[in-house]
Amino acid sequence: MSDMIINRKILSYRNGELKEKEDIIVTEFPLTIMLNGVEFATMVCTPTDIEEMVVGFLGSEGVILNYQKDIQSISIDESKGFAYVETTRKVTPSVESQTKRFIGSCCGKSRQSFYFQNDVKTAKTATTTQTITYHQCIELMQSLQSTSEIFKETGGVHNAALCTQDKLILSRTDIGRHNALDKLYGNCLMHKIMVRDKILIFSGRISSEILLKASKIGVGILLSKSAPTELALQAAEELNISTAGFIRGNRVNVYTHPERFVLNN
């Protein structure tokens, strides 16, 4: 935890009084991924679970499919901010493939969605038959919030967890919404955790990019404390992902594929 936070003196104004105090600030860590000797991506992240994040990011980008077979070596140089990855299949993605937008219909339907080209290849249509009660949604969100000590101290991170109906299995924290999900995905790839019938719970907004991350991980139920965007919900409809947001107190808003949300088991 010490790598994730730092103490800093600040001025605090409250109720008409100005005081100097010490506050806890979340840290940032720039990391550049070198893929087969070529600079692939630079991300700013929370300096924990870095190898998991790199593996998850490469998995979501379609660079690797199987951690054990596709990764030849991976080393992290935290002092210089580099991750060096060698793959068994010498992939050297072009800049165009990472940045050029692709416009097309998802899952063969007529409604058009906007994706990066690699998203078209790696987004998965959910096939889970898992269901969850509204009460379980609320309990899982409460568990996510209560277990995040860094958020309690700083308010500056996002939390994500992989769950069953009844409990959190694996949780990760990062300043970046995408990074928190990549850390989860990386752990699943590294430890061969089956995710199809798991539930993904998230503290941030469900944007279209977050929805696609969930799709790439392979879950069919995505729960959030915050709001969704319309493009995210269009993608969720097409990718057969059930989404719920504004899970706060005793409230749950269901947006897509409500058949997976039930009153009682």
Rank of each mutant, 00 (worst) to 15 (best):
N179R: 04
L181V: 08
T99K: 10
T164K: 03
Q72T: 09
C137H: 00
G16A: 13
V44R: 12
K80C: 11
D166Y: 13
Q165W: 08
A126F: 02
R260F: 01
A123C: 15
P47K: 12
I169R: 07
K19R: 15
D197E: 15
R251I: 08
Y67C: 00
R14T: 11
Q98R: 15
A180Q: 04
L189A: 03
E153T: 00
P258I: 02
I10C: 03
G176F: 08
G204C: 07
T173R: 07
Q98T: 13
I169G: 01
T131E: 04
K216C: 06
T154G: 02
K183E: 05
N187V: 03
T154L: 00
E209V: 12
Y115P: 03
L231Y: 12
G156T: 03
I50W: 02
K124C: 11
N179D: 09
A41L: 10
P258E: 08
M194E: 15
R89V: 08
Y185D: 01
M194L: 13
G155H: 01
N7F: 10
T48Q: 12
D23W: 03
E259V: 08
K192H: 13
L239W: 02
G56N: 02
Q136I: 06
S79M: 12
P228D: 00
R260H: 13
C137D: 03
I241F: 08
L211E: 10
C163L: 07
K183T: 01
L222S: 00
R8A: 13
F246G: 05
T128E: 06
P47F: 08
L168W: 06
T128W: 10
L162E: 04
G218H: 11
R111H: 12
A180H: 04
F114K: 11
L144F: 06
V120Q: 14
K167L: 08
L144A: 07
N187Q: 12
L140V: 07
S60Y: 04
F102E: 15
S75K: 14
V254Y: 02
C163T: 08
V26Y: 00
G204N: 05
G176D: 04
S75Q: 13
I241N: 04
N253W: 02
T32E: 12
N118F: 15
M141W: 06
K109F: 14
C106A: 15
L263S: 11
D23Q: 09
V252P: 05
T42S: 12
E20G: 02
N265P: 15
D23H: 02
T32D: 04
G204E: 01
D197L: 13
G204A: 09
L170G: 00
M43P: 05
N240G: 03
I193T: 11
Q142L: 06
K19L: 11
A244E: 00
S2D: 14
N253S: 11
A160T: 05
T129L: 13
K80H: 13
T48H: 08
